[in-house]
Design a protein around this nucleic acid. Sequence first.
DNA 1: ACATGTGAAAAAATTCACAGCA
DNA 2: TGCTGTGAATTTTTTCACATGT
Lengths: 212, 212
Amino acid sequence: MIKISPKATARSLMYIRSLEGLIKAKRQLVSSRQLAQMTGFTDVQIRKDISGFGKVGTPRIGYNTQDLKQILEDSILQKTTVKVALFGVGNLGTAILKYPGFQKDTIQIVAAFDSDLTKVGKVVNGIKIFDPAEASGVIRKKKAQIGIIAVPGDAAQKIADIMVLSGLKGIANFTPASVSVPCHIQVRNIDFSIEFLALFSEILRCDGCGMK
Amino acid sequence: MIKISPKATARSLMYIRSLEGLIKAKRQLVSSRQLAQMTGFTDVQIRKDISGFGKVGTPRIGYNTQDLKQILEDSILQKTTVKVALFGVGNLGTAILKYPGFQKDTIQIVAAFDSDLTKVGKVVNGIKIFDPAEASGVIRKKKAQIGIIAVPGDAAQKIADIMVLSGLKGIANFTPASVSVPCHIQVRNIDFSIEFLALFSEILRCDGCGMK
DNA sequence: ACATGTGAAAAAATTCACAGCA
DNA sequence: TGCTGTGAATTTTTTCACATGT
């Protein structure tokens, strides 16, 4: 459990997602090969990754789905719930607020903000919408750790500045605009056009080389 | 120009995105160091990546922003426009339809589909909404190459099946549900919870190690 | 001087081959 | 046998050091 590579971490998050599905389907056990089929990685790689977290599986049997999920989550997230603040309750923001994929014990949206005052005060999917002017106070009180930028691109930098001042440690930026922040703040850009282009380039890659 | 690694490709897509910003700001030139600052990679790595596409820069001067963008796009996308079909015009689907980050000559949404018949026939941001029953015909006629799943999770597999039958080569799945498709179809899952968890784990990583 | 481009070295990630256990 | 776990080999990716062009 000494150190775990960034890539292994990213993959492990996908294992967690697959395990959630298995657990929901009442599956008790899973083998590395089954996880491989579900995630698209190889079984060896999965065993290697998991072995970085300790000995969780039992030979001949496989992994207990619940145990494995627990260990992965505890190791990666250090037993804390990730608390998120959302800025911008337009189409995208609303989609995030209603996203059914957040497990309540791992990811929790604790507050939403929108500069449209007709939205302020409303509650969407159990989450209250605040005036961005109150952001700093609300974020500190609710102990949010990361912020989501889902506002129009030209407001992204302004929101990022607010986030930094509010003490958020990480920013997920859904706008195509790039934001600049102090280097101790982590930024993750989720850029739809890059996602689609990456997908497309994978298609081209496989078309070329003799992949079935 | 013989072969270009997957990682270099992924990074190059980000260079393109940065270059778009520079071009919009009327910048003619950019150095690898400036790109490094914008993207967070190192200048050496950027030069190495770019060198895989040929000799585009001029020593002492840097790279011409337009030329570099052109070369990266041509090499990665092979001069074709990526044509996309969207399934599901809810909050998320609408956000994608209105996304301002698609450059018209590289990514083009050619059709949208929604099973809500009150939406069928409407036009959002210039894109017409069709009945999913017509998907196969519309997709072939419009020559769409990749499909986006932005429907509720429980309909994801059904949509994926339609996509495969319609001849789409790649699928971007925005639902937390996993879809199974023939192995020659590329699938890219964009899972918000994984994005946020990955961001959070990076925060933890940097908190631990002595990073400023 | 200043910035690109590149072969060689170093590091990281993946795959292999097999040990060990129920 | 069927599965996990792991040291070693292999491949990929990154970094280094410096040659080259203006």
